[in-house]
Write a protein that binds this DNA or RNA. Structure first.
Lengths: 143, 143
DNA sequence: CAGTATCCACTTAGATACTG
DNA sequence: CAGTATCTAAGTGGATACTG
């Protein structure tokens, strides 16, 4: 039906693009890393509670304390996805009550290192960005 | 009122944490970069339509064509936020009808380079991650 | 051409309460 | 201690129609 051709072509183009999007490596990492808590969990695990130390394993409750404000749901969800991706290990010690500790894998550590690069960029350019924002807002809002 | 103390302490801790979160540089870049279209726009502008060329300016409609499936709303919104952050420039040429072109700034180019690192990590480790996911799912789902 | 305006759908995160 | 279950709020992206 010729009447559908335009819409069909559009839909098809979009499907193809979504496929490309889904396959795009940078999109995948970005999606993984951009969850609200994932970088914070990885930071805690990768640099200690104060983000300035050595990588070390931490327990669930310790993470919950360090990441003040995280709900059990989000912490659990975040840790599970990181475990699924092979970025952290989950170790259960059969004490009573049970003890669970989480630790970055080598893979997780390497991603942490890469994300650190982004962080360094941010620290290096945050003033730049803020200045641009101010100028932009000054030009657009007051009108 | 003593009955509110626990809730108050919790709220305060959360406020403090949100402040930390807001101040955390890596969170800021992540938030900026993780919009669905921002890396795609930056890629198009930074590597040409096929992601393998040189940085060059592109027009609104050209971006809309290359990023098949993007709505005018999202493209406009994405470009505006990138412009606000000083990552792209918006140039209006007073032809008729009007012509607008967008181009990465040096700042935008440098962020593009940093994000490229993430992309390289992803390409290097995607099989690793997929393998972990498969093993994880195999262990958890079939139970 | 280069957007803006409006309305809707979906995903994501948080609060809260309960369990092995 | 280490979570799970449920419900709700909020933010984010999409479809569509219209404008300077």
């Amino acid at each position: 039906m010729a009447t559908m051709t335009a819409a069909e072509k559009k839909a098809e183009a979009k499907t193809q693009y979504n496929a490309f999007l889904a396959a795009c490596p940078s999109q995948q990492v970005l999606a993984r890393v951009s969850g609200k808590w994932v970088t914070l969990v990885m930071s805690a695990l990768g640099s200690g509670p104060d983000c300035t130390g050595e990588p070390r394993p931490m327990r669930y409750s310790e993470l919950a304390r360090v990441l003040a404000g995280v709900s059990p749901k989000m912490l659990s969800q975040t840790l599970k996805s990181l475990e699924r991706d092979g970025l952290v290990t989950r170790t259960v010690v059969a004490t009573v009550p049970v003890t669970v500790s989480y630790e970055l894998t080598d893979l997780g550590l390497s991603l942490h290192g890469t994300v650190r690069q982004l962080k360094l960029w941010s620290e290096a350019h945050r003033d730049d960005v803020a200045a641009h924002q101010d100028r932009f807002d000054a030009r657009t809002i007051p009108a």
